[in-house]
Every structure is written in structure tokens, then in C-alpha cells.
Amino acid sequence: MASKQQVALVVGASRGIGRQVAIDLAKNGYTMVVAAKSTSDAYATKPFPPDPNSQQSTVSTVAREIKEAGGQATAIAVDTRDLESVQRMVDETVKLYGHIDVLVYNSGAIWWASVENTPMKRFQLMQRINVEGLYGTIQAALPHFKNQGWKARIITVSPPIYSRFFRGKTAYAMGKVGMSVLTKGLAMDWEREGKIDMAITSIWPASSIESAATLKIQQTDPESVKDLRKPAIYSDAILAMLRAPVADVNGLIDTDEDFLRTHEGVTDFKKYSVVPGATPRRIMPARFPDLTVAEQADEGRRTDSTKITCGESKL
């Protein structure tokens, strides 16, 4: 049965940032589909709600939290490494609610180390979950976007492109920057095709956000908690991106803090600090490079591989 409310699918919504985004979207009137690999018997989970950064927090408990707060939510298990699983997730969402208005891709695998110390299996895992998972999810959603008149928003978690990001985490950066390239390229496709109601936007934290990963760091460095922000800053920024006109956010890659400052006029970010009164260190550069070039509008003769007959070629 089609939902009269806007429907948001959050992939990677079991804990941390993804959970917060799903809960805050629900508070703002969205019908929610929360997806991740981990599910559970939400009504057997005690105490409830569980620690949002613990293994006890799953999409099942997140859906229960939303419903007990008066919202509408469905939990779907998905393995973003498996295209068939991704396709089922998207198709089931549309079957349940009739449309997808917002797609948030928050799934991610992380390993920060040198190339020498990043095994091939770890590299492949990151590429499959990060860039391939995003690409597959978008591919699965595109026919549904077409059926609903090309009117939807996509938010993905990927960074501005700058040199320092590659340092010490090249394998991770290869996939994450690939996600940012997808944001730029798909936005250009939609602009060229006249899809004026479609937007894809990338968001990245300006300061570290409390999560299961940061809790592990705190075990060896207790003082690091002073540099953490609550995940609410991320969901507030995403909600602001969804409110913004398509032209302002299609192809935009920005940080949570910078977007809230420039588009919402926020100047005081103290409420987001995990430690009251602390000022978390900014981990992002103050300014990012402009990726455009002087001959930006001149790409020469455009080639479309779908219109080329290659015969036996493996191009």
C-alpha cells in the first residue's frame, strides 16, 4: 500500500550515525525503511533501547524505537556486497510503500593503514561495501525513480576530494573517493538529461562523530572523547540538505558543519559536543580544492558505449 508520507530508505541504519539519521527522519514525518546486515528479535532485547553503538542495536531495534515513538518503520536485512540482496531490499521497499523519496547510503567498511599493511581481502571488502554497494543500490533504485517521475534525493557518506585524505589510508580512500566521483558524475547526468527534481549529495563529518569505532579509540586514549560530536549533527545536516533546493545540493560534496553554517546559518555547534563545553578538533581542511578546469564546458566529442557495436570486443 502506497504511503502518503515521503518514504526514506536508510542503508546502514543499525547503529551510530545511521540509526540517528533514521530516527530523526522519522521524527520529521518520513516513513522509514531501515536496512543493514544485522537483525534481531527487537522485543527480546533488554534493556531497551540498547546502546546505539553496541552490537545489540540492529535495524530491528531501530524500527521498534521509531514505531514506539509514533512513527512508521520497517526493517529489512541486506548484504550490500550482494547485488541480489540489494535489489530485493529496494524492490521490497517499493512494494510496501509505493515509492522511495529519499535514499541514504550509510553502509561502510573501514581500515586505515598503509598499502603494505592492507591485505587484498580487506581492500576488496571495502570496495564491495563502499563504492560497489552504493553503485548497486542506486542502480536498483533508478527504475523506480523513473516510474515515479524522476523525483527523489540521494544522500551518500563520502568525502570532499583533497590530497591529505589519501595519507595513511589509501585503500580506504580509493573507495570513498570513488563514491564522491559517483556523486559528481550522476549529478552531471541528471543536469544534462533535464531531471530537475533529482539530486545526489555527499556528506562528511567536519569533526569526529561518536560511534562504535571511536569507542574503541577511547579505550586507549580516554581524552579523545573531547574531540567527538554527537551524531545528531549529521542528521541535522542531512535534513537541511533535503530541505534545500535541488540546484543547491545536486552534486554537492560538503561537511555537516559547513553545510549547516552556510545554508542554515548555524554558528554555535556546542550542543553537538559529546563533552559539554569542549570544542572538538576539526579534522577536515578549512577549504577544499576547486575541481573544475578552465575548459569545463568543452569535453569534445562525447562517446556513449551503449551506442557502439563492439562485436566480439571485450571493451
Rank of each mutant, 00 (worst) to 15 (best):
A13G: 01
N28W: 00
G12E: 03
P231H: 07
I129V: 14
K195V: 03
L239G: 00
A77F: 05
R229K: 09
T306C: 12
R302L: 13
R153M: 00
F269G: 15
R167N: 12
H99N: 13
D254W: 09
V274W: 14
G136M: 07
P231W: 08
N130E: 05
R64Y: 02
M126T: 12
P231V: 14
T61D: 09
Q87K: 08
V225Q: 12
M1H: 10
S273V: 04
W204S: 06
M188P: 08
D298W: 04
I238V: 15
G185L: 04
L25A: 02
G185T: 10
M89A: 07
K176W: 11
D236L: 08
M126R: 08
M120T: 14
R192Q: 12
A278S: 13
P289V: 10
K46H: 03
P289L: 12
V59F: 03
A42E: 02
K270I: 01
Q6I: 00
I196L: 12
G70P: 06
L315Y: 09
P50E: 01
P276S: 07
G18C: 04
E132A: 15
A42L: 02
I110C: 06
V62E: 11
T201C: 04
I283L: 15
K46R: 06
Q219T: 15
L125T: 14
E299W: 08
V266W: 14
K46N: 04
M126Y: 05
V10Q: 00
E257W: 14
Q55A: 15
D189K: 11
A199P: 01
A36E: 01
A26R: 01
E210D: 13
F48M: 06
D91V: 09
D101L: 02
P276E: 11
K146A: 12
T31A: 01
D268P: 15
S54I: 07
I129C: 09
E193I: 15
A2K: 03
I129R: 07
G98Q: 13
V62G: 14
Y97G: 07
M188D: 15
D236W: 06
S208N: 05
D82H: 02
A73K: 00
S273R: 11
A44M: 02
G136Q: 08
G12T: 03
T39N: 11
E312N: 08
E65C: 07
A26Y: 00
N147C: 07
A173N: 05
R153N: 03
I233V: 10
L9W: 04
L252D: 05
V293Q: 08
M120D: 10
I155C: 04
S107K: 09
P231S: 10
A69P: 05
T309I: 15
A36H: 00
I154N: 02
T93M: 02
Y43P: 00
S207L: 09
T255K: 07
L25G: 03
A69D: 11
I23N: 01
E210V: 12
T118K: 03
D268R: 10
S208T: 08
T156N: 05
P285S: 14
S163L: 11
V131S: 14
V78R: 00
I129F: 09
G185V: 06
G300P: 03
P222D: 04
A244Y: 06
D91F: 10
M198Q: 05
S57C: 14
